[in-house]
Design a protein around this nucleic acid. Structure first.
Lengths: 150, 150
DNA sequence: TAGCTGTTTCAGTGCAGACTGAAATAACTA
DNA sequence: TAGTTATTTCAGTCTGCACTGAAACAGCTA
């Protein structure tokens, strides 16, 4: 297989990851492509310019996306002495962080549910809210009791 | 407390639920408001018109949103003989379905990861993909082994 | 049948926000 | 210091899509 073909397949895979990110995590397409590429690229460290060229996005877009991804802790900057280029690599626990963050937000619904039950008077009429709370906190509690071994 | 105040507090609560839906599940605002209202309203069955008036949305918007929510199985139509109005109520397991669906999609990432590891050659360079797969399937497997008792 | 009331369709509006190009800026070399 | 290359900023564009109003439609009553 030629290098071109290989690159094409990788890009196709990156696109699948991006689609997953867009549909399941509501991330912008380019953000998803960056994450996908950083998961499979060799070497794992890539500059904004390299990424921009590979996924066909503008450097300006890369700048804002890299800042965003760095801020939420999914990627990390890697600087090399004697090189003005900033490289980025995906954090080893990036996806774990994503999942964990989602779980935390599920738990946050518990407070809303409590308020709702107070408002509704606590009778059988609050069963709908109770059911929601059970479903949403079930996972969070389960995850808390069974942390992922690293 | 007056009826007006009560209604205001309920609407405020509905808005909190809606915000949660928008931020965590990427649903449109009105869709979130509908779900919030259907969780706390009395009686649990409401017509599209009633909902539209309560949350200040157009009936046209209600039509499309109700169809969407019915299609994905979060609400159900309730028809009463001798009444041309269609009523809707939230399914008891609505939120459980939402959570379950999200878990299934996490598992779907497993296939993408497998392909990625093949593409990357299976060496130590696939560790990033492996880590992602572990994090994403961890929850799904956990949930499968510990179903929510109803 | 006509009349009333609730629902659906559809063409169009408005807006948020992702994305870009070009200019400004910063970082390194010689 | 000037020269070169990478990055960042910013104003603006563009696109998708939630949402609406008005008209068409459907269901019930008398």
């Amino acid at each position: 297989m030629s290098h071109q073909d290989k690159q094409g397949e990788v890009l196709q895979w990156v696109e699948r990851v991006a689609t997953f990110c867009v549909e399941e995590w509501a991330l912008p397409p380019i953000t998803g492509r960056i994450l996908g590429l950083l998961m499979i690229c060799d070497p794992p460290e890539q500059s904004a310019g390299q990424i921009a060229d590979t996924i066909q996005a503008s450097r300006a877009s890369l700048t804002s996306n890299m800042r965003f991804l760095t801020t939420i802790g999914l990627i990390r900057k890697v600087r090399v002495p004697g090189d003005r280029t900033t490289y980025y690599r995906i954090e080893d626990d990036a996806w774990h962080k994503v999942v964990q963050r989602k779980l935390d937000s599920l738990g946050a619904f518990g407070d809303i549910a409590d308020e709702g039950m107070k408002l509704a008077g606590g009778g059988p009429n609050t069963e709908r809210i109770r059911a929601a709370q059970r479903s949403l906190t079930w996972l969070r509690d389960l995850a808390e009791r069974n942390p992922l071994k690293t």
